[in-house]
């Protein structure tokens, strides 16, 4: 298994690296387009701000590289949001893989960003094989993707939104499987076994 983690300016890559090591898989962390294209599977991580992350990807030509990948790709958190069409964060044109807009949580009653453990339900993909409905996973985000045809998991915070998306070979999770206990580990294993 040649698993590549895309290295760019928005990622807590150490956590992702450690999470795969715990399930016995060594990752290659790189921004080299050739190494990304030749990987068996790709993780596109991300924490940070959308517009600066997108500018960096464009500058390194990684935007085109990611869009054209044919093998399974898993975007995590900001990685998933960048795979959508557009983000309200910094009014950013994103990769446009998922036909989704990323919006800001507007709430006077609940805190934004959402930080902590919440449920995922309406699970619809082999990515969630062996994962029970309403399992808890760890979220840190102030923006969300709406529900729609690409939605493969739903979460409720202020409103119901997409906590995971899928289109063709592209998968994305709004939560952090690398920090989501045994449930997260199962999801990472499922991605490896896709």
């Amino acid at each position: 298994m040649n698993l590549v983690v895309v290295k760019y300016n928005a990622g807590n890559i150490t956590s992702v690296d450690f999470a795969f090591k715990r399930i016995g898989i060594d990752v290659t962390i790189t921004d080299d387009p050739e190494k990304i294209r030749s990987a068996d599977k790709i993780i596109f991580p991300g924490v940070g701000e959308a517009s600066s992350a997108m500018s960096y990807l464009k500058e390194k030509n990684l935007d085109k590289v990611i869009k054209e990948l044919k093998q399974p790709v898993l975007g995590i958190c900001l990685g998933m949001q960048l795979m959508c069409e557009f983000s309200e964060e910094g009014e950013t044109e994103c990769l446009g893989i998922f036909n989704k807009k990323v919006k800001h949580f507007g709430s006077k009653e609940l805190k934004v960003p959402q930080i902590g453990w919440n449920n995922i339900f309406d699970l619809k993909s082999p990515l969630f094989k062996g994962v029970q409905e309403d399992s808890f996973v760890y979220f840190v985000h102030g923006y969300y993707a709406e529900l729609g045809e690409n939605t493969i998991a739903t979460t409720d915070y202020i409103l119901k939104y997409s906590s995971a998306l899928k289109k063709n070979n592209f998968y994305g999770t709004q939560f952090h499987p690398e920090k989501s206990g045994s449930v997260g580990e199962q999801i990472l294993k499922n991605f490896i076994n896709l």
Binding site: A19, R22, Y138, K179, G184
Partner: peptide, 8 residues
């Protein structure tokens, strides 16, 4: 520690 735990 970080390499052993799977929570934040």
């Amino acid at each position: 520690i970080a390499s052993k735990i799977n929570i934040p």
